[in-house]
Simulated assay, not measured.
Amino acid sequence: MVGCVSVVPPPRTDDAAASGPDPAAGRDQAGGRRSVAAALLLGALGATVVLLASGRVWARGTAAIGGGSLPLSADGRAVTGVPAALAIVGLAALVAVFAVRGRGRLLVSALLALSGLGAALAALAYADGREALDAAAARTTADTAARVAGLTHTAWPYVTAGGAALILTAGVLALWCGHAWPAMGGRYERDGGRAGSPSRRAAVVDPDRPEDLWKALDRGEDPTGTP
C-alpha cells in the first residue's frame, strides 16, 4: 500500500534535534517517496506502452480486387489517433504535476487521470478496426462501396487500453496523494538561513573587506550597523 504522506520533512525543533531522528517521520517520508515513485513509474510506463502499442497492427483483412484478394492491415494510429495523442497529454501532465501546487496541481492531476481514461475508452471502442480497413479497401480498389472481408483482430488494442489504465492509475494516485508531494524548484527554509537565526546574527562584517559588505547587502543586512 502506497502511503499518501509528505516527502518534505517538517522543520525540527531544538528538542527534536537533540533527541535524534524520529522513526515515524522517517517512515512517513519513505511512504511519500514511494507514492511519488509509483506515480512517475506508472505514468511513464503507461504512456510508453500506449505509444508503442498504437503503432502495432490492430486488425487484418482482405479486399477483393481483380478476381483475387489483397491482404490489408491497419495499425492503431490508422484506426484511431486518440490513445497516442492522450498518452502525450498524460506525459506532459505527469511532469506538470510537480511544477504546480494547490488547486493547479489538483487540476493537472485530474487531466492526467482523464487522459488515461480517455485513451483506454478510445482503444476499446475502436478495437474492431473495421472502419479503417473498409477505408483502406475503398482506396485500394478505387471502389467506394468496397468492404473488407475475413476481418481478424490482434491483442494490441487491449494492450493499449492496459497502458492507458496505468496512466489513469498514476492520475488517481496524484489526485489522492499529490498534495503531499514537493514541487520542482521549491526552496525550503533552513534554520541557518532565517533572518533571526544564530548563524545570521553571528555573521561578522569586516568593513575593510568589500566582499563582506556586498555579502551583507545580499543577505539584507546593514553592514554599517552595530551588532
Rank of each mutant, 00 (worst) to 15 (best):
E211W: 07
G162D: 03
L151Y: 10
R219Y: 00
D208H: 15
L151E: 05
P182K: 09
A170H: 00
R194I: 00
T152G: 07
G225P: 01
G192W: 06
R187D: 14
R209H: 14
A161D: 05
T144A: 14
A165N: 01
W214D: 10
K215F: 04
V205W: 00
L168T: 07
A180N: 11
S197G: 14
G225E: 12
D222E: 06
A146I: 13
G150T: 11
A180H: 15
G162Q: 05
K215V: 03
R147Y: 10
R139I: 08
P182R: 10
S197Q: 11
A135I: 01
H179M: 04
A136N: 06
H179I: 09
R209Q: 15
T160G: 05
T152A: 14
Y158Q: 06
A216Y: 00
A180L: 05
G192R: 10
C177E: 00
A164R: 02
T141H: 13
D191M: 09
P198T: 13
T140V: 12
G196A: 13
L133G: 06
G186L: 09
V205Q: 00
A202Y: 03
P210M: 07
D134K: 10
D206V: 07
W181H: 06
C177H: 04
L173H: 07
E211M: 06
S199N: 08
A180P: 02
G193V: 00
P182T: 11
A137P: 07
A145V: 08
W176Q: 11
W156S: 02
W214E: 12
W181N: 06
G178F: 02
T154N: 04
V172A: 15
D212C: 01
D134T: 13
V148H: 06
D206H: 13
S197I: 12
T169D: 04
A165F: 01
W214S: 03
P157R: 04
T144V: 06
R194F: 03
A136E: 15
R219C: 00
M184N: 11
S199A: 15
L173V: 13
G185N: 00
A142M: 15
A149Y: 02
E211N: 04
P207M: 11
A170L: 05
